[in-house]
Computed example of a mutant assay.
Amino acid sequence: MRFPAPLVSARLVKRYKRFLADVVLDGSGEEVTAHCANPGAMTGLKEPGARVWLSRSDNPKRKLAFSWELVEADGVLVGINTAHPNTLVEEALRAGAIPELADFTSLRREVKYGRNSRIDILLEEADGRSVYVEVKNVHLMRRPGLAEFPDSVTARGAKHLDEMATMVGEGARAAMVYLVQRPDCERLSLAGDIDPAYVRAFEAARAAGVEAYAVGCRITEDEIVADRPVTLAI
């Protein structure tokens, strides 16, 4: 996924109310408020003074022209915009970067299913079997090389696991894809100390036949590409 225009560099002043971030633009020194499209805790990624990169919209109807895209943390670029993972995973699927999910003939996004839910990606295999793919963004790293999910309690995530297990029971395939938006993690684990209920739901879903995969990203100021497997340490 290439950014449509060059990103604007800045320094973070503070992130607050989950979806807002005050930053000082490099060069001009102007302080602006950017949209932070991330409902999570963003542990280790919201330190005042951190170098960040923003996209800018020319849409006059938007209240905030800037959106926070990247942050420099632990010496690498980390993607924090949770609006992108579905697109990144779709690109990875079409490129064959997830071999276990490569045998599909059609791909649709945001399809209704279950108890008033939408699946992120619905694949159809050559034999007509459906594959329900739920995408989760990951950027928490508390130990070197180990990504963890979630970074905050996610009752919605546990609900999705239950619904995917139901789809497997009805004869479909279902797969969790954890998108690690940082290049310095080779393994992924679940943060049971943060959300033990999610871990229990994951274990039940896996026992029911729900698959799980993790994909890492290559990140620059120009693009984000999901192109490498990350080992599940679960």
Rank of each mutant, 00 (worst) to 15 (best):
S55E: 06
A92L: 07
E170A: 09
R142L: 15
S28C: 10
I224T: 06
N59I: 06
D120A: 06
Y213V: 03
P229E: 03
G44W: 03
H35G: 09
P60W: 15
L232M: 04
K14I: 04
E148Y: 14
A34W: 00
A158V: 08
L161D: 06
A191K: 04
V135N: 07
C185S: 13
D120W: 01
D22C: 10
K63M: 13
L188E: 09
G40W: 12
A73Y: 06
K14D: 12
A41E: 07
P39E: 07
E69F: 05
D103M: 05
I234Q: 12
Y213D: 03
K46P: 00
T43I: 11
R18V: 14
D162F: 11
R187T: 10
V133I: 13
V210P: 11
D195I: 03
F3M: 07
V71C: 02
M167E: 12
R142T: 14
M42L: 15
P229H: 04
V180C: 15
N81I: 04
A155C: 06
E31W: 00
A175K: 00
A102Q: 07
L20W: 09
L190T: 09
A214N: 09
K112P: 05
Y178H: 08
T87Y: 07
A175Q: 01
A174T: 05
F19D: 02
E221S: 07
A34K: 00
P150T: 10
A126N: 13
G40P: 05
L123E: 02
D74N: 13
D26C: 13
V180G: 03
D162Q: 14
H35N: 02
V135K: 00
S189T: 15
A204R: 09
V225P: 09
C217H: 02
K159V: 13
E90I: 11
V131T: 14
G29Y: 05
Y132G: 05
S152L: 12
R62E: 14
R18D: 06
V71P: 00
L161K: 01
P60N: 12
I98L: 14
G49N: 01
V8D: 01
R129I: 11
D74V: 04
L122C: 08
G40I: 09
V210Q: 04
G145H: 03
R18G: 06
Q181D: 09
T87V: 14
S117L: 15
H84A: 11
E47N: 02
L232R: 00
T105Q: 08
E110G: 07
V13H: 08
A197K: 02
K159I: 13
E223A: 15
H84T: 06
R108N: 11
I194T: 15
S130F: 08
L190Y: 12
F149Q: 01
G209L: 05
K112H: 14
A175G: 05
